[in-house]
């Protein structure tokens, strides 16, 4: 697959109070951004367990974006700081798995920042396009004896 033809799949986790509304605003304001991101709304960026990110990457995503309220503006007071700490810890761990830091982006967008949200998505899509597909191999499942014997 040539670089120009590669369209990354990016899973975007957005919080109910700021970043999802930023995405909504981007839409109602007719701001264009690449369609590569699949948004999943959660109540708060503090809800994002690194499990969600790993599962997305292991199951075929090329990147994951986590978007929350700006620091100090979390609807639940300080849960976006939890997201920040988890992201920094996850990045350290992912490096040992050989996964580039650009594939997991943490960003902030308030409900008024539709343009900023669109810019962030665009920037991330560009970066992941440069990195190429992740193509994480699928998890092995037990094969029946017959299947095992015909395998090379």
């Amino acid at each position: 697959m040539s670089e120009s033809a590669f369209e990354p799949v990016i899973i975007g986790f957005t919080c109910n109070w700021c970043s999802y509304r930023a995405a909504d605003l981007a839409g109602t304001s007719r701001i264009k951004y690449p369609p590569n991101v699949r948004l999943i709304r959660v109540m708060c960026s503090g809800r994002i367990d690194p499990t969600f990110v790993l599962k997305a990457l292991a199951d075929g995503a090329d990147g994951v974006m986590i978007a929350g309220c700006h620091p100090g503006e979390c609807h639940y007071l300080e849960q976006n700081y939890k997201a920040l700490r988890r992201h920094r810890l996850l990045q350290r761990t992912l490096a040992q798995f050989g996964i580039e830091p650009e594939r997991v982006r943490l960003t902030w967008a308030s409900a008024a920042e539709g343009a900023r949200f669109a810019e962030e998505v665009g920037a991330m899509v560009d970066e992941v396009k440069k990195l190429g597909p992740l193509n994480w191999p699928t998890r092995p499942v037990p094969q029946s004896e017959a299947a095992a014997e015909v395998a090379p």
Binding site: P50, T51, P71, E78, L84, R85, T93
Partner: peptide, 28 residues
């Protein structure tokens, strides 16, 4: 728990007493 390591990251990062990236990194 689907992934023991991920759940541990969640648990440890939650209890770190730091908010600024540099302070978080110092603990980590």
């Amino acid at each position: 728990v689907l992934d023991q390591g991920a759940r541990l990251m969640t648990a440890i990062a939650s209890v770190v007493e730091a908010q600024e990236p540099e302070d978080i990194d110092r603990v980590l």
